[in-house]
């Protein structure tokens, strides 16, 4: 793929920073953020600067530990995602986005998936009163615009990395497939993968299903019990969440999660208990919800993962100047 054969783990800091692969990947990433900002601005979005710490953060992260910060004697958290702040920010603007850093102490087994970093960036979008379908359309348009713009702006870097622009031709032309979680489970079982019907698509399953296609696709309608309390439950189909994942083709796997949000006070309390949370610690958020939080839908698009997909990199750490892999102490 490149002159510098990547290993499964990042090299030393100097070698990584001076590598032409890193340089090309980061320039491509720059095109991606520029294109994302441009597309969202044209569509009426307000960009906000992201909060870094808070009394609570997104709890809906499978098996990952949050990082504590001593804030004048109060236990604060580094953001695992800005989801709670995205919902709150809709009190100010109807369409908002952040390009936000996140920190998650992921389980150690994710260090070798090629797709997990403990510190990473998301393009975090939220739209007041939007349905999931509207958000899927928005995300599809955004990703297509990002790819289109990056192919034009970063042609030299993509060529250097050996990424064939023809790989993107189907997704620029065809609509993204949409399948439910139930359909995805059936497809995986058809591929002899023992995917659970109640849980998220596991990492191996996600890679497997992603390898079967050349166009990104959405998996919708995850079962309740597979996600945190912010993912909204269907009013007509109890137990089914109005959420989705966006899966990149050719084995690149999940790029983005999102959906309609739980926003009503009583539903939030119930869902917090269903996800084992103690409502007391979400006081500031529940106070807002008690007086009314807007209905909304949105998503968080992983910047390093999109970079990896577009640049055709083997590992997500190649798309980060100072990669921190789960369990590995590094600058």
């Amino acid at each position: 793929m490149t002159q510098t054969l990547p290993t499964t783990m990042p090299p030393g800091t100097r070698e990584h920073l001076t590598s032409p692969v890193t340089r090309a990947a980061l320039r491509i990433q720059n095109s991606i953020t520029r294109a994302a900002r441009e597309h969202l601005r044209v569509n009426g979005f307000q960009e906000l600067t992201p909060p870094i710490i808070g009394p609570v953060t997104d709890p809906g992260v499978r098996g990952a530990k949050q990082l504590d910060v001593d804030f004048y004697g109060h236990r604060y958290k580094l953001m695992t995602s800005v989801i709670l702040y995205k919902q709150a920010s809709l009190l100010t603007f109807d369409r908002i986005f952040y390009i936000a850093p996140n920190v998650r102490l992921e389980p150690l087994e994710t260090a070798t998936t090629g797709r997990h970093l403990s510190e990473f960036t998301q393009i975090d979008v939220e739209v007041k009163d939007a349905s999931r379908e509207e958000i899927l359309d928005l995300l599809e348009g955004l990703l297509r615009h990002i790819v289109d713009a990056t192919l034009r702006e970063s042609a030299v870097d993509l060529e250097f990395l050996g990424r064939d622009p023809a790989a993107f031709e189907p997704m620029l032309r065809k609509a993204f497939d949409r399948m439910t979680h139930t359909q995805a489970v059936a497809r995986l079982r058809g591929l002899r993968h023992g995917q659970s019907t109640d849980a998220e698509i596991d990492w191996q399953g996600e890679k497997l299903i992603s390898e079967q296609t050349d166009v990104p696709f959405f998996i919708t309608d995850y079962p309740k019990g597979s996600r945190g309390f912010t993912d909204g439950e269907s009013r007509t189909e109890p137990g089914v969440l109005r959420n989705f994942d966006l899966i990149a083709p050719a084995g690149f796997g999940e790029l983005c999660s999102g959906g309609e949000r739980t926003h009503e006070y009583r539903r939030l309390i119930e869902r917090m208990r269903e996800t084992g949370e103690n409502p007391a610690k979400y006081a500031w958020y529940l106070d807002l919800a008690r007086d009314g939080l807007p209905a909304s839908a949105g998503f968080g698009l992983g910047l390093e993962r999109v970079t990896r997909f577009i640049a055709g990199l083997d590992y997500v750490w190649q798309a980060n100047a100072y990669p921190k892999l789960p369990g590995i102490a590094s600058p």
């Binding site: 849980a199 019990g225 996600r227 119930e270 208990r273 996800t275 084992g276």
Partner: peptide, 13 residues
Amino acid sequence: EILRHQIRLMRNN
């Protein structure tokens, strides 16, 4: 309902 989903979430996470 709460017990059921807490258990499912444990299995998921």
